[in-house]
């Protein structure tokens, strides 16, 4: 089922084209990564889909409904970037209002607020005001509001930006669990994070669609990526190049090594043997390139 359709969707700010005639069709299913450099149009696209801003041209449908349709209430939700709850009222009161606006009775709204706060592990903070919470907790509360009423489509704009690792893990686990019930579209600069969570990727640049497809591209069969935290770099590269089928070995950032191989060779097996023989520990081994390497390498 198509969850998002855009036809020539554009947003201009004066002479700046934040989004330029975007034609896109996304299917329901695994989380979708929305990536691109700053100014690529990611937040603009999400804001247009949520109806926060009006397009300069083109049209978009979400879950088969025109953007802004009341039929989307309760089906579409979002964690907008830089959106904050009212600091004057408790988390519980504000989420309760959101639930009632989605058509729940007061008693159902209370139960739903408890459920979503439990999901983000913040039940104890229900009566607190947003100002009493840490940045990470506030982000989790904002995520909780996005889960009210079990929506079909959830748009997350930079959900883990500026958050400490424990909160990032909670959010990541939560998205992984909830993605069984809803389709997530996640905009982020953290490509490692997105690789762990998402099944497909939309890559925008300068307001245009560059690529849309599975996160593990089949064209990547000729590569292996291995993360080795502490090995003698030159020795590893030398030994690795001797393996049958290896065309090239390059050191990437963060202790990652990109191995270019001839297709058809089982280089991964030989590589594991090499690591075992030398007592070199590896963190992870990926068939193909990392998303970062594929897009920006």
């Amino acid at each position: 089922m198509s969850i998002i359709n855009t036809q020539g969707l554009s947003k201009h700010y004066g002479s700046v084209k934040a989004l330029d005639a975007l034609d896109l069709s996304l299917e329901a299913g695994e989380p979708i990564a929305l990536i691109g450099p700053n100014g690529a149009g990611k937040t603009t696209l999400l804001s247009l889909l949520c109806g926060f801003i009006r397009p300069s041209a083109g049209a978009a449908q979400v879950l088969g409904e025109n953007v802004g349709s009341r039929a989307l209430s309760g089906k579409l939700s979002a964690l907008p970037q830089d959106a904050h709850l009212d600091p004057r009222f408790s988390v519980q009161r504000q989420l309760g209002l959101f639930a009632r606006l989605q058509g729940m009775k007061s008693s159902d709204a209370k139960r739903e607020v408890q459920r979503v706060l439990d999901t983000v592990q913040l039940t104890d903070s229900a009566s607190k005001k947003p100002g009493e919470l840490s940045h990470g907790m506030r982000k989790r509360v904002s995520l909780a509001q996005a889960l009210i009423g079990k929506p079909e489509l959830i748009l997350l704009d930079e959900p883990t930006a500026g958050i400490d690792p424990p909160n990032v893990k909670i959010i990541r686990d939560l998205v992984r669990n909830e993605s069984k019930n809803a389709t997530f579209i996640i905009s982020s600069h953290n490509l490692d994070e997105l690789e762990k969570l998402c099944g497909s990727v939309v890559y925008l640049s300068e307001g245009k669609l560059v690529e849309y497809g599975p996160i593990e591209a089949t064209s990547d069969d000729g590569f292996l990526t291995v993360r080795l935290p502490s090995v003698p770099e030159e020795q590893f590269i030398r030994e690795c190049r001797k393996l049958s089928g290896v065309l090239d070995v390059q050191r990437q950032a963060q202790g990652d090594y990109l191995i270019k191989q001839t297709e058809g060779h089982a280089v991964d097996q030989a590589l594991l043997s090499l690591l075992a023989k030398n007592g070199w520990r590896y963190r992870h081994l990926i068939k193909g390139r990392s998303l970062e390497e594929r897009l920006y390498g």
Binding site: P80, A83, H84, D86, Q94, F98, L101, Q145
Partner: peptide, 16 residues
């Protein structure tokens, strides 16, 4: 203030 703070976005997702 709701518009400036972004709180209005949470409301617009649920009400016209």
């Amino acid at each position: 203030s709701d518009k400036t703070r972004g709180t209005m976005r949470f409301l617009v997702l649920r009400a016209s």
